[in-house]
Simulated scan of single mutants.
Amino acid sequence: MKYSAFENFVSKSRLERYLVSCGYSQEKAMMLYGANLRVSKAFYPVLNLFEIFLRNGIDDKLGIYFSDSEWIINQKVGFMNDASLGPKFWLKTQVHKAQTDLRAKGMKGKILAEQSFGFWTCLFEPKHYKLLEGYVIHCFPNKPSAVNRNYLALTLKEIREFRNRIYHDEAICFNEMNIDFKHAKHIQNGLYDLLKWMNPDLSDFVNQFDNIEKEIEDALRI
């Protein structure tokens, strides 16, 4: 495809950073755009599996904490309804929305799976963490003693923001106008740290589907 046609479909503004970082070589800019997509694609299985493991790990721990396997539904009138979370009561609203959507589709269950990644990561934010008496930290039984709620919350926030960039087809290959995958590598390392702290076997399992290193190496050859 000619660059002019590619630019027309992708947009000039979106391609500008690629063009500048490649010394205004249109051919290299197109190659880098493709490389960015391939690195992003390589992150998909790692991010997807991490989200599943985190969600189910939290569900397991909170099921124990509340002595209730249906806590996500029943806590709409419990901690999710605490006055400190008002006036929007975001968690409760998300659960209610999932229930409404599933009923409209004639489906049952799946309330857990319907929740966004942000739903789970926000449980490590101070206001929710306090209401849960810090119990969600038990999702990471193998974490170093120096790792606290704040560290976990910041790491999860970075992962969530990076995930959103990928899911919205944003560039992950730059530092300012330079081709740089250091932040992507930082996120990858953070993901594996958290996986190991949940269970070392999870890290080994995810690694089978991880092609990130190779795609970054190929991208840096452009």
Score class of each variant (00 low, 15 high):
M1V: 14
A5K: 15
F6G: 04
N8I: 03
F9N: 13
K12S: 13
S13E: 15
S13D: 14
R14T: 12
L15S: 00
S21I: 05
Q26N: 10
M31G: 01
M31V: 12
Y33S: 06
Y33M: 10
G34C: 11
N36S: 10
P45L: 02
G57P: 02
I58A: 03
D59C: 08
D60V: 07
L62G: 03
F66K: 05
S67G: 00
I72T: 06
G78T: 04
N81H: 08
K88G: 00
K88H: 06
F89H: 12
F89T: 09
K92Y: 04
A98Q: 06
Q99A: 08
L102K: 11
A104V: 02
K105S: 12
K105H: 06
K108E: 12
E114N: 14
Q115P: 05
L123S: 05
K127T: 11
K130S: 12
E133K: 13
Y135K: 14
I137N: 10
H138C: 08
C139G: 09
F140I: 09
P141E: 03
P141N: 03
N142K: 12
K143A: 15
P144S: 08
S145P: 09
V147A: 14
N148Y: 06
R149W: 01
L152I: 15
K157Q: 14
E158I: 02
N164D: 14
R165P: 00
Y167S: 13
H168W: 05
E170A: 06
I172A: 04
M177A: 10
N178M: 11
A184W: 09
I187K: 05
I187V: 15
Y192F: 14
L194K: 01
L195G: 00
M198F: 06
V206C: 03
Q208H: 14
N211A: 09
D218E: 12
R221F: 01
